[in-house]
Design a protein around this nucleic acid. Structure first.
Lengths: 341, 341
DNA sequence: TACGCCGCTGTAAACGCTTACACCGGGTCA
DNA sequence: TGACCCGGTGTAAGCGTTTACAGCGGCGTA
């Protein structure tokens, strides 16, 4: 083990209290004494012991991030955003994946006691009461793109979500502006909140454009590339064929693209195509995929900032639901691009 | 704050020592007493305080992961692997990015004292002495795909690396087996260790195949897609044109692919193309990119396991350099695929 | 009967730190 | 000259645990 405050005190010929004072820059210390102590610290390569400190100050300078097990690119981007904000404010980030296995999530949650000052939860959905029940009462929590199960007791947590509705709305209107009327949708999982919002956005846009919605044009999907492929095949069989397809996420859009390609239907000439999320792959398929861009890392940063506010102003912090805006990214696949690859 | 061990003891009518004993399953406790304590724990929703525990046991059940700032997909995969192994063994993961700024990395390093039981360092390169100097002497460290600067004092750390040489070797031999003789290489950054190994693998394969290496066929690059594009243009200008191109990473391969496409040179008909890393995008470009697959998450898992071994067997643990094997992934772009998209 | 052992339990020290409080000496003010 | 204040410092309590040690019955054995 490395040196403790006691050894520093000994070496500098002062009491540990004084050492503590210079470390934390609290209370008066004679300039000369301070120098001596600083020198001792330097020589001993002393670093305060985090746990000991936490024990008494009751704060860890660490925030936890809870993720589902299978986190891909989306989550890593979020983490990056979180880490960025965390470092800016001198905090550490403890990450923890979990199977949605109820027992395990409880275990993870409890293991967090005394380790974190706050928690960011990223999960497709989560049981709000279970969360509260297994967490210290006062631990600040912000939900990130996470929908609350059970009594949607709005003010229980801070929350940050993507503007799914707005993004879908904008994209479908764009498609309509390009002259398309028969605009199909490849839906996401039936119970998925993001998917539902995107569906609502799609319908709202049709309404605004004066296009009658048609159930036949709303093809089911589950966010997987494969389901996109199948949806593409079903779309092809439709009579008349849709002029444009909006997939509720990029994976499905790409699956659909491959189905169309397999049938020698050319995008965007024969049918326009667009997705949602703007995953990196979107710009690498041919033609490049138009999509709705989600500022993922920013989600993380925002969450972190919100959390830090809660931690630092425990009392006057008030909970809030935030929505972060999306942006339309027009590339080749919808036929409305300025430039193509 | 939540309940402490004292309150549990009070409620159960025993001393805190006994409570501690049932929590840690150490020492004998009468069955009846244990029940009473368990009940109290349950009612109070008591969870031991991590920091307090760490203070005395001198272990945190947490391992740190140090990453460069700009971590993308590669790093997130590693983290996933690490987290997986960590959870299996009941450990937490503390991640921490850093600018390569020397002062900051030192700060980060020191801040870790008393917070982690071990450290995984992921960084393009790192100053070994600086690392040791700012870390508690005894803290186990494993380097992951990280090359050591300064005196390459082999046994200072555990290390895990990708088999760059073997991967490149295998791919180039595959290209040769397809009948190609003029096989070009798009190199990585001149000082990058991965790039250098891949270069060596390329040359070794040529040698084995009895192909004379030609400096003209070794085009510089820096791992960026853009440099791949430029390399592609240079390749096109060569007389005679190479029959195959092996790029030292996928990004450059894709850049090159786009350059070829722009010049109406068809892959793989006119020239075969292959990359290295097998990033997810590889299978989405047209034609799908042949590549050398790196089991990224496994890197993380391996590192974690190595680290845990070091932590748990402090004394008899001996340091080691491991290499994890790569696998050849043959898709459309090299013209040797079984099936294409 | 006396001794020792063993299962069970409590007491208290220790981990490394922060901080309330007390102390000390010298200067300021009346 | 005495009262007071204040900068600078030390003492010690306490944060929530673990754990060495000791104590205390009851039982088996000599």
């Amino acid at each position: 083990m490395s040196a403790s405050i006691k050894e520093v005190a000994l070496k500098a010929g002062v009491s540990i209290a004084t050492v503590s004072r210079v470390i934390n820059e609290k209370g008066p210390v004679a300039a000369e004494t301070r120098q001596r102590i600083l020198a001792a610290i330097e020589q001993l390569r002393y670093v305060p012991h985090g746990a000991a400190r936490s024990l008494i100050t009751n704060q860890t300078d660490t925030i936890g991030v809870l993720l589902p097990d299978l986190y891909g690119e989306f989550f890593s981007e979020v983490i990056r955003g979180v880490d960025l904000a965390a470092r800016r404010s001198g905090h550490h980030v403890l990450i923890s994946g979990f199977h949605s296995d109820r027992a395990e999530i409880e275990a993870v949650l409890r293991a967090l006691r005394g380790r974190v000052d706050g928690l960011i939860v990223l999960s497709p959905d989560v049981d709000a009461q279970g969360l509260r029940r297994n967490l210290p009462e006062t631990l600040p929590v912000v939900l990130l793109n996470t929908r609350i199960n059970g009594r949607p007791d709005g003010a229980a947590f801070d929350a940050i979500n993507v503007d799914n509705h707005g993004g879908a709305f904008a994209m479908v209107r764009h498609l309509a502006a390009l002259g398309h009327r028969r605009i199909a949708l490849i839906r996401g999982p039936a119970e998925n909140a993001d998917a539902l919002e995107r569906l609502r956005g799609y319908r709202a846009a049709l309404r605004v454009e004066g296009i009658a919605p048609s159930p036949a044009l709303e093809i089911p999907g589950d966010f997987s590339e494969e389901s996109g492929y199948r949806a593409g095949e079903r779309l092809l069989a439709l009579e008349p064929r849709p002029e444009a397809v909006f997939a509720a996420n990029d994976s499905m859009a790409i699956g659909c693209l491959f189905a169309l390609r397999a049938a020698d239907v050319e995008v965007p000439r024969d049918v326009a195509l667009a997705g949602f999320d703007d995953i990196p792959i979107a710009r690498y398929v041919t033609p490049q995929l138009s999509s709705v861009h989600v500022p993922i890392a920013e989600l993380g940063t925002r969450a972190m900032e919100r959390l830090l506010h809660a931690v630092e102003h425990r009392n006057e912090h008030e909970r809030r639901q935030e929505t972060v805006p999306t942006t339309l990214v027009v590339r080749g696949s919808c036929g409305g691009a300025m430039k193509d690859l």
